[in-house]
Design a protein around this nucleic acid. Structure first.
Lengths: 340, 340
DNA sequence: CCATTTTGTGGGAGCGTTCCCATGAAAATA
DNA sequence: TATTTTCATGGGAACGCTCCCACAAAATGG
């Protein structure tokens, strides 16, 4: 049944030396005679020997693997973050175990368990929009496994984080609409459970205040990020006695959905209603009109987060330094808010 | 330094029983007295015990992990395939190790090594566009590790595959353009090293032949799928003495890029030139005009591939049954080829 | 009531490494 | 030449688990 694997013992026997010597030759230990090493290397090659990470991991009690938990995979944002993280991990010789929580709290908890069971050396995580209980993160802390949050971070737990300047980004996005001469700027916000939703909302409000515009409650809608609902809220906004003449959406998928709905309703963008998103996702340049958006350095987020995690792993202090890295966003102006 | 992990031995000692019994209790072995099991379970819970997969894997010589190697991560296609695969893997209690080859042969080889070293129980793979040497796949065969190809498959190696009806899809796509009354239909094809490129090219040609149209060589361009080059080829096509009035692109990213270039050139789509893509990627519905495309059941590809792989893993015959599952494509008509 | 089966448990090898310690030979030093 | 140092190697425990085998106590049967 069980196919035999080529082990260092096989090599040792053929060469009539001990497995210790083979191990040393293979790992590049200095105190091995060069002809011995040579012979081992050659035979290993010839026998298709592959070091068994399972054994190495067990022996060293570390898996040389980092876990990444993301809420979803469909929009381009998370895949690109993962690319960035993987680059860094690869360079450092780490494998990457990826799982997506599907925006579901239960799945996130289950994924965390899997990571734990697989003894990952650290975890990169962006929470689901539902996550309000952080017990499953505490376990990592108790076990001394580094955790780095990115994008959707958790502020009730001391840990390194990588975020963008959500407040400032939202501020600038809103200001951009104000300077365009827009009078009634609506905001389609994310759920208050997410820190980024709150920050972006704040930036939006402060921009209005700075320019002495009223903050109008009926123009602010907080929703749970399930895109199907965008249609309902847009229709609500358009049906107001004085509808908005601009919309700042919490993220690009939301903004894109909004554009679709507004076009369906026969309104012109940006004349009747201008739109700004947040992220610069893949679709933002494709949709007509192009979506003005606050670009996030997506790949860089992944790189920085991975680097931070690796740093934590290598400094084996048991306390996590709660470093927060804030990356800059950049306004990209496209047709959805262009002055014509 | 090394933090102590809670092991079954810790539990055993506290309870004054042997580790065998603890192991049995934890794994649900029948011959354990129920009060013993109860006690073990409770203590395990209380002590934050997490089974160490590293040890279990080594002991059982299997990792309960499947590997997935994809060429890239940016277009929506592969992430969605992965989602599908992960669903199936999760259900079966398998973890997923993902790596992307970045469309580079060397990286693909390196990734394969990592998979091997981590003793994955099987691998799902879609090759890079450069891969012409299959030695790194043979290793899996020699070691008896199941391999399932999807999308970009390899025909020089006997293995299960999951593909879509590329020939038929291309045939229908081309026929659609013909029925639209288009006379000179160009084809921007993929590299001949990829089976899907060849099949799609064949379908295109046969559709022309069926409708007694000439196959014009100057209208057929095979390129290496690096999107930056699309611009060059489109310009070449438009500069022909009699330029094409339709374009069938090998995939959606190519088609989308083509639309952008053609719009830049000031031509009207679909009146002057109609376009059809292949895949129904995320961007296809967003771009203006919407891209007519042959939709692939993307998520299903992942599910079927993972299922096939799991089947192979569980039937422990050493020969791979070279089952090929062909999934259906479906023509989705949008603005880029609509009769107005 | 003794022989036999069942049930629950303990002991220990094995999975493939690494790494520490011991050992003998060769080389360097006194 | 005697003694210490270096070098290359071997032996074996450890990593945390599973699983086979053995064994005692309890249950069953004639």
């Amino acid at each position: 049944m069980k196919r035999h694997q080529v082990t260092i013992i096989d090599i040792a026997q053929k060469l009539n030396i001990s497995k210790s010597t083979v191990s040393r030759a293979l790992t590049g230990h200095p105190s091995v005679r060069s002809d011995t090493r040579q012979a081992v290397m050659e035979l290993a090659q010839k026998m298709d020997y592959q070091r068994n990470m399972l054994a190495i991991n067990l022996s060293s009690s570390q898996s040389k693997t980092i876990g990444i938990i993301v809420p979803e995979f469909v929009t381009s944002f998370f895949p690109i973050v993962i690319m960035g993280a993987q680059e860094i991990a690869d360079q450092a010789g780490y494998s990457v175990l990826i799982s997506q929580s599907n925006e579901t709290y239960e799945t996130e908890v289950a994924n965390a368990k899997v990571m734990l069971a697989n003894r990952v050396d650290g975890v990169l995580i962006s929470m689901t929009r539902e996550t309000k209980n952080y017990e499953h993160f505490d376990v990592f802390k108790r076990k001394g496994i580094p955790l780095v949050f990115f994008n959707r971070v958790c502020h009730d737990i001391e840990t390194p984080k990588v975020v963008v300047d959500d407040y400032e980004g939202a501020f600038k996005a809103t200001e951009h609409l104000i300077l365009l001469g827009k009078q009634r700027i609506a905001h389609l916000a994310g759920p208050p459970s997410l820190y980024i939703s709150r920050k972006r909302l704040e930036g939006y409000k402060d921009a209005l205040r700075k320019h002495r515009r009223p903050v109008i409650d009926e123009l602010i809608i907080s929703y749970d990020l399930t895109l199907e609902k965008v249609k309902i809220y847009i229709k609500y906004l358009l049906d107001l006695s004085t509808p908005p003449d601009a919309l700042f959406a919490v993220n690009d998928p939301t903004a894109i959905e909004a554009i679709k709905v507004i076009k369906e309703q026969g309104l012109s963008i940006p004349e009747q209603i201008a739109i700004v998103g947040f992220s610069n996702d893949y679709g933002s340049a494709l949709i007509e009109p192009g979506l003005t958006t606050m670009a996030q350095p997506t790949r860089e987020i992944g790189q920085v987060a991975a680097q931070l995690l690796l740093d934590q792993i290598h400094t084996d202090s048991s306390v996590w330094k709660p470093i927060t890295r804030v990356l800059k966003t950049e306004l990209i102006i496209r047709g959805s808010s262009q002055r014509i």
